[in-house]
Computed example of a mutant assay.
Amino acid sequence: MKKIIMRLALVLVCMAVAWGAVLPAGSEAADQPRVEKKAAANGPASVELGAPVVDKASILTKAQVEKLTEKIKAVEEKHQVRIGIYTLKNLPSGMKAGKLANNVLDEHYAGGQNGSIVFLIAMGSRDWYISTDNTMRQRIVDGVGIDGLKDMFLEDLSDGNYAESFGAFVDGVDKYLTYYEETGEPYDPANEFSYTAAAVAVLLALFAAWAFRGGLISSMSNVNPASEASAYLTQGSFHLSRNQDTFLYTTVTRVAKSKNDDSSSSSCSDSSHGGGGGKF
């Protein structure tokens, strides 16, 4: 009987030891997925929230994102603004690029001391849109301001040089904001046109043409000026016998005026946002 009790005790001790060894491993394995899931859920969201570059379309390399981020942060600090570059594969169903860009600005990039601006592109529909808040709108105005930025980045964007295109956009924003801070008014390409320089150029061109013409005339030995028009007509070589005008018919051709379908003029501006966009 004593032997049976000792054997039962030994079995219970072995089971206790085995259970103690299994329980920590099992609980750790059970808790691990929750930890990993939480990290996976919080990681990307915290990176994307207000990040200078959010590349949901995956068109940039990690090195390109880091370089753009560094450039954007330098311009943000220089002018006390918020700048965002936001790419995605497709627009949500029924959503326009301009409306989405406005929402992205309000949710993730609002609060720039001197304004906020977001550059959004949708790869599926080939849409681009620049959204500004009202503070930035005073510095980069709708129309000439947005079109000026477009001219800086659109060619590279259409050619698939996305990093270069985004870099040109950031450089353009820097240029426009610097101009505003120095002059107190938004940049307008027309301001760079000098009427004085244009007038001087016209005068120089006229003088050069007059001098060239005079040189050609002076080199012609068989031509002399005539004081009367009759000198150019051989006497007796022309006789007008009859003078009559006959009306035949009139042809009228009407061509429909083509409508301007320039996608770059599309805008979702409202009381709180400026900007514009188009196709690339």
Score class of each variant (00 low, 15 high):
residue 10 L to G: 13
residue 8 L to Q: 08
residue 28 E to L: 07
residue 48 E to F: 08
residue 55 D to R: 06
residue 10 L to F: 03
residue 37 K to H: 14
residue 31 D to R: 14
residue 24 P to L: 04
residue 36 E to A: 11
residue 49 L to H: 11
residue 31 D to H: 12
residue 37 K to A: 15
residue 36 E to P: 03
residue 38 K to S: 13
residue 11 V to I: 07
residue 35 V to D: 07
residue 16 A to E: 10
residue 9 A to C: 01
residue 23 L to N: 06
residue 38 K to M: 14
residue 41 A to S: 05
residue 21 A to S: 14
residue 46 S to P: 03
residue 55 D to I: 12
residue 45 A to L: 13
residue 30 A to K: 08
residue 34 R to T: 13
residue 39 A to L: 15
residue 34 R to A: 15
residue 7 R to L: 05
residue 46 S to A: 14
residue 7 R to M: 01
residue 21 A to C: 12
residue 22 V to C: 00
residue 37 K to T: 13
residue 10 L to V: 04
residue 42 N to T: 05
residue 7 R to I: 04
residue 11 V to R: 02
residue 46 S to Y: 06
residue 34 R to C: 05
residue 10 L to Y: 04
residue 13 V to K: 04
residue 38 K to T: 12
residue 44 P to L: 09
residue 13 V to P: 02
residue 14 C to P: 00
residue 52 P to D: 06
residue 22 V to A: 06
residue 25 A to N: 11
residue 27 S to C: 07
residue 12 L to A: 03
residue 47 V to W: 03
residue 43 G to Y: 09
residue 20 G to Q: 14
residue 38 K to R: 15
residue 34 R to L: 14
residue 51 A to K: 09
residue 12 L to H: 00
residue 34 R to N: 15
residue 52 P to K: 03
residue 37 K to V: 14
residue 19 W to A: 08
residue 30 A to D: 09
residue 40 A to G: 13
residue 33 P to L: 11
residue 39 A to Y: 15
residue 7 R to E: 06
residue 38 K to V: 12
residue 32 Q to G: 09
residue 54 V to G: 01
residue 41 A to I: 09
residue 28 E to Q: 04
residue 22 V to E: 00
residue 52 P to W: 05
